[in-house]
Design a protein around this nucleic acid. Structure first.
Length: 660
RNA sequence: GCCGGGUUAGCUCAGCUGGUAGAGCAACCGCCUUGUAAGCGGUAGGUCGUCGGUUCGAGUCCGACACCCGGCACCA
């Protein structure tokens, strides 16, 4: 007999062969019906998998939402795979996990990849599979049997995978009627436990076998899956809301910027978008000045020899724009470049240039830490498929800085940086962010000892700020560091819960060495400084994109490109509208007038859609009384106030947070 | 870069199986002088992404290329 301990503290004795489902049934019919899986000694398991000894048992019901969703999504993935093989015989199955909002399955198609047009038919077939309500039965197979089975089925991908699993490992398959897949499980008791109305196939895409570019391209089908129809619909609504925030859509609607074919991957900023940039840059400049940074500006184009020395030529050249350092002959067919041309490159990073500034003259230990900042414009030749609106571009401007310091100053510099970043994120409306440590990548410079030291120093420095905690999402990411240094990553959370990596801080001893940066120490000897690469926004392009999506275009007043529009009701008020505009402009507000021959309804609608924070309506009455009728974006009513009171009302909000 | 889908007026989109383009909004002109989310009428606007091919004839079919979108890989 096994002793099964329940969460209420009671213990039941059961015979070998008993399952969690049997225990649920013994407790009561209600629980038996509700239980969909079990946690046995903490491990999520099938409801029908017999106990193997004494155990702690907690039955899982749909009220345990995280577990229930995970199980359902994993089941949907299996149902998807079965449906696809029913409809498209010869399609090979590979791998299909649950995701944050659903599931996907990667297939090796027989003759053509799937397209979105295939999805409705596959959804229908999935509903048929669910309706069959086949029990999902767990079976333990030997590795050799599995390999033989997949070989017989023509499933070469699954076969390859099984063959690579350690010999002797206990492998499980899940069988649903005639169909089976190698899978760790666990699963729901049968396909019929899924709600046929709670999933939707959303898109198709390519995906490399095992995530490696060198491998075959598989055809992936994505779906979203939930416990019931209501949840599905809520999710679809959330997706629609997120789509409305898309910075590309809002950027066009608000006339902030555009992109075009002839400069793909580079942004054309319009007056309104550039105003946001200017406000953000001015704010950052004040923060950096106050934090002891010195701003510099360094060249865009530098000789290849410098990039060779820095190591970028070797490790980063595929991402660099390279130009010949000569005036090419221009023939009809185009420029001709001589064979022995020297090469220059547009900078993909600012660090080598900053080292050049550091190297000028002799630097004393008394000058450290030296914090050199630049709103540095960089170019990177990104893979074309990676470009995305203004979030991922080929020309961008970083809020970059390099701190040259001694090893004993490192912890303090990290602390100062974390505090600076913390304040800036909060000023910009981001209350929550996570910190991660990206560890050494395979492609790197420097000795293992150097990496050991650099990684540990960042670990210790963050711990010293008290932020290496679960509240800050602290974790270490293997292999994700830069080629010259490990990096701290700061991921902020936006208004709809998405996270974005923006800030970074890297501890680098490689570049000072390669570019021969040194300072004179107290001992009169030359020493290598440590170089901290750091950014807070990351890039202006991407950060403004994030701001647009975070605020859904409704910028806080201090960032809004147009802070108020004075809209007239009758043309008799045109002169007064201009007076109001001039008064507000003199008070430092960004205001436009709208004296077009249109009804006030029309103007209200148009400026509301344009997300103007304050609409100031003036008619005959206001002109006579020296007032405006203020309508704030997102609010229904309006408030009639004197112009000077309006200035007082808006002044604080219109002031950047660091100047309030 | 890879897989799939796109590219038609300033914007959003229609155009079936080939017979040389259409709507709404915006723009412009006029009427209306207007009170808080679209007042009414009229006018103009496109070598249908680029190049090539098939055809008597291509927005429509085929090919190449460019860019965009969704993913993959890469990444700030």
């Amino acid at each position: 007999m096994f002793k099964i301990a329940l969460p209420d503290g009671s213990v039941r004795e059961v015979a070998p062969g008993t399952t969690p489902g049997d225990v649920a049934a013994a407790i009561g019919p209600g629980l038996a019906k509700a239980a969909i899986a079990a946690r046995v000694n903490g491990e999520l398991r099938d409801i029908g998998r017999p106990f193997e000894g004494d155990a702690q048992l907690a039955l899982v019901t749909s009220r345990d939402e995280a577990d229930a969703l995970d199980l359902a999504r994993h089941d949907y993935a299996h149902v998807l795979a079965e449906a696809v093989q029913n409809l498209f015989p010869g399609t090979q199955i590979t791998f299909g996990p649950a995701t944050d909002d659903g599931f996907y399955y990667d297939f090796a198609p027989k003759d053509r990849p799937f397209t979105e047009e295939d999805l409705p038919a596959i959804e229908e077939e999935m509903r048929r599979v669910i309706a069959k309500d086949a029990p999902l039965v767990r079976e333990v197979w030997t590795r050799d049997d599995l390999i033989a089975y997949f070989k017989a089925q023509g499933e070469t991908f699954k076969g390859e995978w099984a063959a690579e699993l350690p010999e002797g490992e206990e492998l499980t398959v899940y069988r649903a009627g005639d169909w089976l897949d190698m899978c760790r499980g666990p699963h729901l008791a049968s396909t019929g436990k899924l709600d046929p109305q709670a999933f939707k196939l959303t898109r198709v895409s390519g995906a490399y076998w095992r995530g490696d570019q060198k491998n075959a391209m598989l055809s992936r089908i994505y779906g979203t899956g939930w416990l019931n129809k209501k949840q599905l619909q809520e999710h679809l609504t959330r997706l629609e809301e997120a789509a409305k925030r898309d910075h590309r859509k809002i950027g066009q609607e608000m006339d902030l910027f555009h992109l075009q074919q002839e400069a793909h991957g580079s942004v054309f900023w319009h007056p309104k978008g550039w105003m946001i940039w200017r406000q953000l840059e001015a704010y950052m400049r004040r923060k950096l000045d106050a934090a002891g940074y010195q701003e510099i500006k360094t060249p865009q184009l530098m000789d290849a020899r410098l990039w060779e020395q820095s190591g970028h030529w070797g490790k980063y050249r595929e991402n660099m724009f390279v130009v010949p350092d000569e005036v090419p002959n221009t023939e009809e067919q185009g420029p001709v470049i001589s064979g022995d041309a020297a090469w220059m490159a547009l900078k993909p990073m600012n660090c080598p240039a900053h080292v050049q500034v550091f190297r000028q003259g002799i630097t004393s230990y008394r000058d450290l830490p030296m914090r050199l900042a630049e709103f540095g414009c960089c170019h990177r030749n990104e893979p074309h498929g990676a470009l995305h609106g203004i979030m991922r571009v080929r020309q961008f401007t970083q809020d970059d800085a390099h701190i040259f310091c001694r090893a004993d100053q490192l912890v303090e510099e990290v602390r100062i940086f974390c505090d600076l970043l913390d304040g800036i994120y909060k000023d910009l409306g981001f209350e929550n962010y996570a910190i991660k440590l990206a560890l050494r990548p395979e492609k790197r410079f420097g000795s293992d000892e150097m990496w050991d030291w650099a990684e540990q120093s960042l670990r210790d420095a963050v711990a010293a700020t008290g932020r290496a905690t679960p509240e800050f999402g602290w974790e270490e990411l293997e292999g994700e560091g830069a080629f010259y240094a490990p990096k701290l990553e700061f991921h902020l959370t936006d208004a709809i819960g998405r996270t974005w990596q923006c800030g970074t801080l890297q501890t680098d001893t490689v570049l000072p060495e390669r570019l021969d940066a040194s300072y004179v120490g107290e001992d009169g000897q030359r020493h290598r400084p440590i170089m901290l690469h750091r950014a807070i926004l990351g890039t202006f392009e991407r950060f403004i994109g994030i701001l647009i999506e975070h605020h859904a275009g409704r910028f806080p007043l201090w960032l809004a490109p147009v802070q108020a529009v004075v809209a007239t009701i009758v043309s008799d008020a045109d002169g007064y509208a201009e007076e109001v505009r001039a008064t507000l402009a003199a008070a430092g507000l960004r205001v436009e007038t709208d004296t077009r021959n249109e009804k006030i309804n029309y103007k209200v609608r148009e400026h509301s859609l344009a997300k103007v924070p304050a609409l100031l309506v003036v008619g005959k009455r206001e002109a006579e009384e020296g007032t405006v009728a203020v309508r704030r974006l997102g609010q229904e009513g309006q408030q009639v106030v004197k112009v000077e009171d309006l200035i007082a009302m808006l002044k604080d909000e219109a002031t950047p947070p660091d100047l309030r």
